[in-house]
Amino acid sequence: MKSWRRGVVVPAAFLIGTAAFAGEHTWDVWEVFSNADGTVQFIELRETNGGTGENGVNGNVVSVSPSGHSVTIPNPVVGSTAFHSYLIATPGFAAQPGAPTPDLTLPAGTINFIVPGTDTSATYAPWDTATWAVDALPQDGVHSLSRTTVGGPLTVQNATPTNFAGGTFQPTLPGEPNLVANRLAADGTSISVSWDTAACAGEVDHQILFGNRSNFPAIPGGNYTLQGGTCDIGTTAPYTWTAPSASDGSGLLWFLVVAENNAGREGSWGKYDATNERNGSGTGGSSGVCSITNRDLSNACGH
């Protein structure tokens, strides 16, 4: 039988190296964030498959739907792309102290690029789309919708906007005192706890309220129960806290610092969303520990 070819095959080595452009396929929509008024927003893409040469993001469009707002990525990224992020953000985000520099800042004056309550998807066209239920996007200024696994669903997480260079930070509510915890002992039994004393001067005293995994409310808006409280820690930060172990065996211990007036009344536990207070199971949503019998929310700082 006559052969269909005479045996000439284009050498593989000849084919390799003719790819004129960098890849672009392995970026996914990873995290979506908006604050309440839409001034501070970001969409983070992430290279999810360890591709080192997925630099060719330029020319691709990131859009949200159904509002139809879109932006075209103008430039390729430079350097290894494996598991890096690409941060697209509003000018309001970029202006926040400590915020990582966006890889692409939306035009001056841009607000509500993502329209909360309307938009339900973000697309890195044409390769990936992430979707969420209408009204599922947190607007508390702290949380975002984020994937935690490649191709997984978006879920509510602490926002961690990250740029290509790896710069990141944890957003906090405007005007909300920052709480910073530093582990002093490797096993977590000694923790240095600091809070913003400048923003909330004049408080009488504070307490640390803590709980374990089983103390979280079953549903958003439900009451928190407590494992206990560390009373009368004073008004000077940092405070060195001897932290207990989680009594439910979960290994998860959460805590917050709450102001109190040494007369049975404590202040806010902060909000679990844009408007609603976290509540304890005591009177008026108070803790019911450390001789607390009521709560006063009239002062943003607490007591």
């Binding site: 003719t18 672009e24 396929h25 498959n49 591709g51 040469g53 490649v150 191709g151």
Partner: peptide, 22 residues
């Protein structure tokens, strides 16, 4: 179209294959 040519990306990608869990 240069954009389409790049999107077609007619070459193999060396990726971290452990990231594919499907």
């Amino acid at each position: 179209s240069a954009w389409l040519y790049r999107a077609l990306d007619a070459h193999g990608h060396d990726l971290d294959l452990t990231t594919f869990t499907c």
